[in-house]
């Protein structure tokens, strides 16, 4: 059976959950091998072995990081040359999509981004994605090998399957043109202490209706243990950071509960939240399109409804 490469998402060898998900999916397509970029492979090996990586290709070269697409693509191409994989799976996000894009040009393989499932298909690798603001679910077939697929988080439940995780070092010489675009400085973002937006079980979001005062939104989020989201109108006004924006040009979230406060429900906002399990909205305008999506809606002023709901939830919890 052909190899299937999985790009490992890790911080200093701490392997992230999405990698275990990808290794699990890869087992249905062939023999999974991990591709590890960095110098801390020994820390990562046990976890990669636990989820079925037969080999771990290691690229330990300071010119290759997970943060710049062109060198990463050259590294992946070097591994692919050696492994002749049937498929290459990458966690979606960061520069991985762009590295996958370059790899598709280099290898002639087909590229699918943001897949929510990957499985063997008739005449290639079959994938599932959503399209047009999540109004459609689309099935695709990658007919040219290798199938290069970036996969969204939570696409599979990680299932253990012990394997050898034999380390295979790969030498990569990064081209001058790939080195030409470089990072000259990095500024870490402050952490909010709240759950990560894309991982949170509950998201409470505020829009233009907050008039810039997110305190009731944040208070309710903290009571629920939720992440805070924002509409683009709120972000454009400078009320909340762009990294909290939900929607087409922000984050796509799919939590158990999404609470939209003072958000009208434009198509670009829906694109980021309409696959949420349960949707609740508070809006002054009973005609607001967000109400078409809700499981429960309150027509009212968020500045009175939210604090009352907050008190009631706190009372119910204690």
């Amino acid at each position: 059976m052909a190899e299937v490469l999985v790009l490992v998402d890790h911080t200093d060898g701490q392997v992230k959950k999405n990698t275990a998900e990808l290794l699990t999916l890869a087992r249905a397509l062939g023999v999974p091998s991990a591709v590890f970029i960095g110098s801390s492979v020994e820390a990562a090996r046990p976890r990669l072995a636990q989820f079925g990586a037969a080999k771990v290709y290691v690229v330990d070269n300071p010119d290759v990081t997970g943060a710049v697409a062109a060198p990463l693509a050259e590294a992946l191409a070097a591994v692919a040359e050696q492994a002749s994989p049937a498929a290459i799976l990458l966690p979606t996000g960061g520069v991985n999509k762009e590295a996958g894009a370059r790899l598709a040009v280099k290898t002639g393989g087909g590229l699918i981004t943001d897949a929510t499932n990957v499985q063997p298909g008739d005449g290639g690798v079959a994938t599932t994605q959503s399209a047009f603001a999540s109004n459609y679910t689309v099935e695709s077939l990658v007919t040219k090998s290798p199938a290069i697929v970036t996969v969204k988080a939570n696409a599979a439940a990680p299932a253990a399957a012990q394997a050898g995780a034999t380390v295979v070092p790969v030498e990569v010489t990064v081209s001058e043109v790939a080195k030409a675009a470089k990072i000259t400085g990095t500024e870490a973002k402050a952490k909010s202490g709240r759950p990560e937006l894309t991982e949170a079980q509950i998201v409470v979001s505020g829009g233009r209706g907050t008039s810039g005062d997110f305190s009731p939104v944040e208070a309710f989020a903290d009571t629920l243990g939720a992440a805070v989201g924002a509409s683009r109108a709120a972000v454009d006004a400078g009320w909340y950071p762009h990294s909290n924006q939900v929607g087409q040009t922000g984050k796509q979230v799919s939590p158990q509960l999404y609470v939209a406060c003072g958000i009208s429900g434009a198509i670009q906002h829906r694109a980021g939240m309409q696959t949420s399990k349960t949707i609740v909205a508070i809006n002054k305008d009973e005609e607001a399109p967000i109400f078409e999506l809700v499981d429960f809606g309150v027509v009212g002023d968020l500045f009175t409804v939210l604090p009352q709901a907050n008190d009631a939830v706190q009372a119910a919890k204690s």
């Binding site: 309409q274 949707i279 609740v280 508070i282 009973e286 109400f291 078409e292 999506l293 809700v294 499981d295 429960f296 809606g297 309150v298 027509v299 009212g300 002023d301 009175t304 409804v305 939210l306 604090p307 009352q308 709901a309 907050n310 008190d311 009631a312 939830v313 119910a316």
Partner: peptide
């Protein structure tokens, strides 16, 4: 999505939400 229950706040909207 099937539209769920929509209530108009008459002083108890937050309680109903909870």
């Amino acid at each position: 999505r099937e539209q769920g229950e929509i209530v108009t706040d008459e002083g108890d909207g937050g309680t109903k939400l909870a």
